[in-house]
Design a binder for these strands. Structure first.
Lengths: 191, 191
DNA sequence: GTCATGAGTTATCAAGCGATAACAAATCCC
DNA sequence: GGGATTTGTTATCGCTTGATAACTCATGAC
C-alpha cells in the first residue's frame, strides 16, 4: 500500500514492493498472481479499512473521543471527517485509492474504482444519513485532502506562507498531527 | 494531453503520444528532449489554459454569457465553477493536472505540481477575491470533479441510479454537456 | 526417518520502454 | 540553383519490468 501510494499503480514496481516487504520479487508476483491482482487486493483492503473507520464513528456515541480538536467534532460530519484524516496513519491508504480513481480508463481498475467510490457514497448516504448534497460536499473535501497529500504539500508548509494558510484552513487542529506523520514518512522510507 | 490524461505520466508511452499526434515516436522524444519534459510542458499549458479561462470570467461582467444554466451562474464562484467544468472540452487537461497532483513524491513533477496548484490558489484568493475558506471549498469541488472524471463515472450513469444521483447533484445543468463530451471521447479514441 | 507440503529463493526470459544515431527530404536564403 | 537549416524518418540499442521455471529448505504427519 505504501509503495503504490507513493508511485502509483504503473509507477510502482514489484521489485520495490518486494523490497518494502522484505521478500524477493518473484515471491510477490507468485503470491498474488499478477501485479494487477495485487493492486486490486490493496484497493479492496484500503476501502475496507476506510469504511470500518466510518462504521466505528457511526456506532460510537459522540463526546467520548480522546482528542477535542476544532472543526466541530460534535457533528457527525465533523467526526467522520476526522476519521478520514486519521486514515493518513495508514501510509498509502488514501493515496492508493486516489491512484485507482484516476485510472478509470483501465477496464478492470476502472470498474473496481467506481464500485469502491460508490460504496463510500452509499455508506455516507444510507448509513450516516447524509443527503446527496451533504455526501457530495464530504467527498469533495476528501478528494481535496487526497490531492494535497499526493502533492506532498506539507513539504512546503514551512517555506511558503500560502501553503501554510491553505493547510491550516484545511486541517485546522489536525495540522500538527499531519506534520508529524509526514516527518515519520520520510524517516521510514527506504529510498 | 489526451494520452497523459488517459494513462497517467508513467502509464502513457511516447509511442502512444506519437500515434495520437500522427508522428513517429523518436520525433516526440527528440522534440521535447525527454518524456518528463514533455509532461511538464503539458502541465504548464494545461495550467495556462485553466487560468486564462478564469481570467476571462473575472474580466467579463456577469449576465451576458450564452448559457443560462442552473447552479447560480450569477455569483462569481458559480461562473468560475462553470468555466472549470468547461475545461472538460480540452480533453485530458484536468486529468493531466490530476495525474501530476498525485505524483508529489517525484522530485521534479512534485515541485511543479505544488507550484501550479498554489498558483491557482493564489489566483482565486488574490484576483477573484475569495477568502481562504472559499478558495478551499472551490478547490475541493474541483478535485471531486477531477476524481469523478478520472473514474469515468459517466460510464455508469445510465446503469446505476446512485451514480446518476451523484452526477446530477454535482454537475446539475451541465450534466448533459458532460455526457456529450464523454460520448465524443470514446468515439474519438484511437484505441 | 521419510515423505509431502508450504514458503521462499535464485536464475532467467521475453517484451516493452525511452532514448540515440544516422539518414532523408522539404524549405529557405542569397 | 546550391548549400544550410528545419522537419521529420527508420533502425536499433540498452535497460527495466513482470513473469516463469526450477530449485532449496524448513516443518510436521504418521
Amino acid at each position: 500500500m505504501q509503495v503504490f501510494g507513493d508511485y502509483g499503480y504503473v509507477g510502482a514496481t514489484t521489485a520495490q514492493i518486494a523490497r518494502a516487504a522484505g521478500v524477493s520479487q518473484p515471491y510477490v508476483v507468485q503470491t498474488f498472481g499478477t501485479k494487477e491482482q495485487l493492486f486490486l487486493a490493496v484497493i479492496e483492503q484500503a476501502l475496507d479499512r476506510l469504511l470500518a473507520a466510518f462504521a466505528e464513528v457511526v456506532e460510537t456515541p459522540p463526546g467520548d473521543s480522546g482528542d477535542t480538536d476544532s472543526s466541530d467534532e460534535s457533528t457527525l460530519a465533523g467526526r467522520l471527517g476526522a476519521a478520514y484524516v486519521d486514515q493518513l496513519e495508514d501510509r498509502g491508504l488514501l493515496l492508493s485509492l486516489m491512484h485507482a480513481f484516476v485510472l478509470g480508463r483501465d477496464p478492470v481498475i476502472g470498474r473496481v474504482g467506481r464500485e469502491g467510490f460508490m460504496k463510500v457514497y452509499r455508506y455516507l448516504r444510507d448509513v450516516a444519513g447524509f443527503s446527496p448534497q451533504e455526501v457530495r460536499g464530504f467527498l469533495a473535501e476528501g478528494m481535496l485532502i487526497n490531492t494535497m497529500v499526493g502533492l506532498r504539500m506539507i513539504d512546503d508548509v514551512d517555506t511558503d506562507p500560502d501553503v501554510e494558510q491553505l493547510l491550516e484552513c484545511s486541517f485546522e487542529g489536525k495540522l500538527d498531527k499531519v506534520r508529524a506523520l509526514a516527518a515519520a514518512d520520510v524517516a521510514g522510507s527506504p529510498g
